[in-house]
């Protein structure tokens, strides 16, 4: 049977539980932090490479898939920055907007030159001293080789399953079906729903790996309608879009919790940087063990 082109490969229950990193004794809160920072890094790099959000979203889903399950990648073996790079590079290759390895490496070098992980989006485009992020020819060669190697690892771990169906266009179709755009707040509602779909990419609950696009789109519309104040039909309209009440409830809670999770992360790391390489993760673990030893 041919799987529906609207459907996504989902993580199995076994894949959700212990990840490869956790088996390697990486605390799960650190894993969450790194995954969150990696997804944000991918998003930022995608913006700087002027990629459409569909391509960026696909890259983030590939990035997230890579770490899941016992057979997934472990933070002890792979740095999140490199996996993010490889995921984005792969996603552009399959899209109509291929980017050269050089552009990708330059953009990540630029992003790496910021002192902290949590930078404001406005700062992203601020012109800086090019010396801070200049990549010499020799460095470029080594980074390119590393990129190609990690790219192959990503393909291997995912078994070449790079197909990602996204909820964005479905969301618009659903809004049209609900006749939302005749409402004065229709456009605002659509924007808000889209924003929820984008933040869901960063969810520590891996919503894009556990739910189908139709369900994500429905939940985003439900929540956005509540927030914007557009009245929805007085029936179980979500069932028309293949979502049952239970899934809707779970997803709405999941979407709502992304914000508080993000705030907590920002507070937790402050000006410090989330460890995005294998060495940095090791250093962080060392730091944690010594500080707990003192107590």
């Amino acid at each position: 049977m041919r799987p529906s082109p609207l459907a996504n490969p989902l993580a199995t229950v076994a894949q959700i539980r212990p990840s490869s990193s956790q088996i390697d004794n990486i605390p799960s809160d650190l894993e969450d932090s790194v995954r969150f920072a990696g997804a944000r890094l991918t998003q930022a790099a995608g913006i700087l490479l002027r990629l459409p959000q569909e391509v960026v979203a696909q890259a983030i889903v590939i990035f997230t898939r890579f770490w899941v399950g016992q057979e997934g990648g472990s933070l002890v073996q792979f740095g999140a920055e490199q996996v993010s790079q490889a995921s984005l590079y792969l996603a552009t290759k399959l899209s109509a907007y291929p980017k050269s390895a050089k552009s990708v490496i330059n953009v990540y070098a630029y992003l790496d030159s910021f002192p902290s992980t949590f930078i404001d989006p406005e700062e992203l485009h601020r012109k800086k001293d090019p010396k801070e992020y200049y990549v010499s020819e020799g460095t470029y060669q080594t980074r390119r080789d590393a990129l190609f190697k990690v790219e192959q690892y990503v393909l291997k771990v995912l078994g070449f399953q790079l197909h990602v169906s996204l909820p964005y266009t479905l969301c618009i179709t659903y809004l049209q079906a609900l006749d939302v755009f005749r409402h004065p707040l229709g456009r605002e509602l659509a924007k808000r729903a889209n924003a929820h779909l984008n933040s869901a990419l960063l969810s520590p609950q891996l919503l894009y790996l556990t739910h189908q696009p139709s369900q994500l789109a429905t939940a985003a519309i439900y929540l956005a309608a509540k927030e914007v104040g557009v009245k929805m039909p007085d029936v179980d309209w979500w069932e028309v879009f293949d979502t049952d009440r239970e899934e809707l409830g779970f997803l709405v809670v999941g979407l709502l919790s992304v914000e508080s999770f993000a705030m907590k992360e920002k507070e937790k790391w402050g000006e410090a940087r989330v460890p995005m390489t294998v060495d940095a993760v090791e250093a962080e673990l060392q730091k944690r063990s010594t500080s707990s030893g003192v107590e």
């Binding site: 609207l6 459907a7 490969p9 291997k156 078994g159 189908q212 069932e239 293949d242």
Partner: peptide, 15 residues
């Protein structure tokens, strides 16, 4: 009971 459409979706695993 209303039956909702369920999508059959493949998973993934290492090569």
């Amino acid at each position: 009971e209303r039956k909702l459409l369920r999508f059959e979706a493949p998973g993934w695993g290492p090569c």
